[in-house]
């Protein structure tokens, strides 16, 4: 069971000038086997939600709770959250010079599983995951995200999703910066992962294109630090036509 349950979540971003409240009471339930999408205007706090749940040191949860499979995440360290089954595909994946993808992923896999992956089958596993998202085998030897194009970074996040195979994946704008074919390939990658049946997906996006391929069970509209409306895929289509205006009226 990989239910992600968010209740009354408040979180601040820590800035040079002090902390600034961004999340203002998020309620959201994403059950195992479901695909959820979050859509919302720029700056509404979608990435903040993803970072706060994952434990980024720049964000602090001030109230509320977030549990994965019944485990409270907010008190865990970043790696403990990953070990609890959480994965964050980042809007801006970070470059780590001098650390090869293969070395990084082997270390991560070992940390998550408690045992090192099998020497014999490991390179094949990496190559298969890279190939699945349209990256060739040379990416395994390259430094983590270094010099990757915007689209290659996003593809590599999905390759990592496959290799680490967590219980629950939050994917923050995984479709931004992708070309038309890449959106389809990445969506197929997400579908393959979700098709295992006992995994959860929370997809943050601005575009309905990826949702046509991934077919979310639920769409949440996120405005000014909280979920203001929930619906099915038709809600996304509606937003595409009407925008966020009727939700943002009355807000800043």
């Amino acid at each position: 069971m990989a239910d992600l349950i968010i209740r009354g979540l408040h979180a601040d971003v820590l800035t040079e000038e002090g902390s600034k409240p961004i999340l203002k009471g998020v309620d959201l339930t994403a059950k195992t086997g479901e695909i959820h999408a979050i859509m919302g205007p720029n700056g509404s706090g979608k990435s903040t939600l993803a970072y706060a749940i994952s434990g980024h040191p720049k964000y602090r949860i001030t109230a509320g709770s977030v549990t994965l499979d019944g485990v409270e995440l907010s008190t865990l360290s970043v790696d403990q959250r990953a070990k609890a089954g959480l994965f964050l595909g980042m809007q801006y994946p970070v470059e780590v010079p001098g650390v090869s993808m293969a070395n990084f992923l082997r270390t991560a896999k070992t940390a998550l599983d408690g045992v090192a992956p099998k020497v014999r089958s490991w390179p094949k596993e990496i190559n298969a995951a890279l190939e699945l998202v349209g990256l060739d085998a040379t990416f395994g030897a390259r430094s983590v995200n270094e010099g990757f194009s915007g689209g290659e970074k996003k593809r590599a996040e999905i390759a990592q999703l496959h290799i680490l195979n967590p219980m629950f994946a939050i994917l923050d704008e995984i479709d931004s910066g992708l070309d038309i074919d890449a959106v389809r390939e990445v969506a197929e990658g997400i579908n393959t992962y979700a098709a295992q049946g006992d995994r959860g997906v929370l997809l943050i996006t601005h575009y309905t294109r990826i949702l046509r391929y991934t077919k979310p069970d639920f769409v949440h509209v996120f405005v000014d630090g909280k979920v203001v409306q929930e619906g099915g895929q038709e809600l996304a289509d509606l937003l595409e036509v009407a925008g966020y205006e009727r939700f943002t009226r009355g807000h800043a």
Binding site: P57, V78, D79, K83, P93, V99, F104, T107, A111
Partner: peptide
Amino acid sequence: FYLMSRGLSSSEAKRLVIQG
């Protein structure tokens, strides 16, 4: 954060960054 979000402990992440 990026490395730890993939399951590496703080010390493993630091070690990898220095090695890199």
